[in-house]
């Protein structure tokens, strides 16, 4: 591919590979852990991997739009964390043991 390599001499494909590995680690963590807080952190990992992909494509295509999209992703991630942690707190309020996703059904009713 005849793409612009303006800044660093490392090809964009390497950055994309790192982002893919980060995304996979996040996905595996989300599927395999049961602690909701750790699951949430894995979601953040996946979002970060996508951000890295955006920035890499912004460099490869020489387009500032990719970086602007990362900015929006950050805002959405912040909002998501605020609401998600509020939900987690309301799951665990009054619970003594265990902080796992299995106890989400106590929110019923």
């Amino acid at each position: 591919m005849n793409l612009v390599a303006a800044t660093t001499s490392v090809p964009g494909a390497w950055y994309l590979a790192v982002a893919a590995v980060l995304f996979t680690i996040g996905a595996v963590g989300l599927l395999s852990r049961r602690n909701v807080l750790v699951m949430f952190m894995c979601v953040e990992l996946m979002l970060n991997a996508v951000n890295l992909t955006f920035v890499t494509f912004a460099r490869m295509l020489d387009d500032i739009g990719g970086q602007v999209l990362v900015f929006f992703t950050l805002v959405v991630a912040a909002a998501e964390v605020v609401v998600g942690l509020a939900i987690i707190v309301s799951i665990f309020r009054g619970r003594v043991e265990g902080a796992t996703a299995d106890s989400a059904n106590i929110l019923k009713g």
């Binding site: 295509l61 020489d62 387009d63 500032i64 739009g65």
Partner: peptide, 8 residues
């Protein structure tokens, strides 16, 4: 390329 403006 550069739909939203060039990054460089």
């Amino acid at each position: 390329k550069s739909v939203a403006g060039a990054a460089s």
